[in-house]
Design a protein around this nucleic acid. Structure first.
Lengths: 249, 249
DNA sequence: CGGGCGCAATAACTTAGGTTAGGCGGAAAC
DNA sequence: GTTTCCGCCTAACCTAAGTTATTGCGCCCG
């Protein structure tokens, strides 16, 4: 049961760096408003307060960039446990746009409270830093995908990655997980066209690797899919990875 | 004159966050060994001590990933002022491989000294964190390039980005700057084939946009090149950007 | 000083993936 | 309850970029 927002934050931070009792207590004491985003495809641009740091509690969102002529690139998927606006918190200025991909609920922590907490507990700064480094690591892996992997490999890689990230926060059910993206959103994430995403999914279905309907993916043989994608999970920096073996072959 | 390694580090950190006197003094007092890497194309894997954080003082390097079947993706270019191994410092574990792209000289700071400094000056942690966030921001922009920009746009974008990054550390001369990459290294960075990099460079030359010979690039009209690439420099998070205007049109 | 090698250049040909254009079905809207 | 719209699917065709191959040059090395 990780629906308490502060617990989710603590769990996320501890997945990279062990925290002591007083640090955990400090985090647990952070004031934290819940904010629910009612629908999909909502740009969060003006909707999120600049004076708060937000974390996804439930649902999906993405970072994206639009080019002047309408091309769009989705830069990352954001899932429960992911913190959205640390860049803004640290560097100020703008960060890439964020939009929901499903109904979502966010937790909002006032910047000032977080600042105060970090003054008392400098190691929490390091823990938060870690989460941004992991995000960067994922970004880099996407770079490898888009730069060097074929369409099927890319798709397979994204599915493997998403499966493990969700498993780490308890959002998988066996080999199934929710993936509420349209094919054209997948296309924007993978640097492909919508049509080709469709072809690619057909191929993965026909070869019996996955099922994907109604926003739910099922991976029939994780290890095979991972091999095809040249997926290796180190870059996710998950400390525990009990689930790969647990997936039925 | 930024050849003193600690000064370069201070300058880099201050480009994101103003530091006070005692913080600057602390940084200036960091012990720091110089290490020179004699040639290009040296993987730094075993060569860098895990007990030090390294910064590039002179020369070029890159992060890269090799896939099992020989495909390679260059993930980022590292230039004077860039810190190489903060991920390892914070998260431990592996980070993507790094290789030199020219003769280079590095500064090595013992992890232990840095840890001690960060305990006394927590804001320096935030400043270091900022540098990794800027790197991430650049990664994301590469993602946009490889995902959505055409070959010429990609090349133009890389040249604009590199020009500004080098200008920020005083490594440009007017509109010229060193870029000691082979066409096949450029290909690995841009997600293109060597042949197509060649074609693309020819085209940029024929249209009078750039000169590129002997490892030196000259940009004849920065603003035009930036427009073609849909380059906008915000993502580099440079606080001062006096140089765009200064480039002759 | 001659042979080999890495890099740039270019040409000929192939292909993965993009583009355009429909059709089909379900769900929200009126 | 029909209309509209959006998402999925398919087919035909196109093109940007990949692949393979050859040449030539400068440089290091023997």
């Amino acid at each position: 049961m990780k629906t308490m927002p502060n617990d989710l934050l603590i769990a996320r931070l501890q997945s990279h760096l062990a925290l002591d009792e007083s640090e955990r207590n400090g985090l647990a004491g952070l004031p934290c408003q819940m904010r629910s985003m009612p629908g999909r495809n909502l740009a969060l641009a003006g909707k999120l307060s600049e004076n708060h740091v937000h974390m996804i509690i439930e649902g999906y969102a993405c970072r994206y960039r639009d080019l002047a002529d309408g091309r769009r690139q989705i830069l990352s998927l954001l899932m429960p446990g992911d913190v959205i606006d640390l860049r803004q918190f640290v560097l100020g200025g703008m960060q890439p746009a964020v939009a929901t991909l499903s109904v979502a609920t966010l937790a909002a922590i006032p910047n000032a409270s977080l600042f105060r907490l970090l003054e008392d507990h400098p190691r929490i700064t390091t823990a938060l830093w870690s989460t941004t480094l992991v995000e960067e690591s994922i970004s880099r892996e996407w770079l490898v995908s888009i730069g060097k992997r074929s369409a099927i490999e890319r798709m397979a890689h994204l599915l493997c990655e998403t499966f493990l990230r969700l498993a780490a926060v308890g959002r998988t059910e066996g080999a199934r997980f929710p993936l509420p993206l349209t094919q054209s959103e997948l296309a924007d994430a993978l640097g492909l066209s919508t049509v080709h995403v469709n072809r690619t999914l057909q191929e993965l279905r026909k070869s019996g690797q996955i099922a994907f309907q109604a926003g739910t993916v099922e991976i029939f043989d994780f290890n095979a899919l991972a091999a095809q994608a040249m997926f290796s999970p180190d870059y996710l920096h998950l400390r525990e990875m009990p689930l790969i073996g647990a997936v039925p072959a």
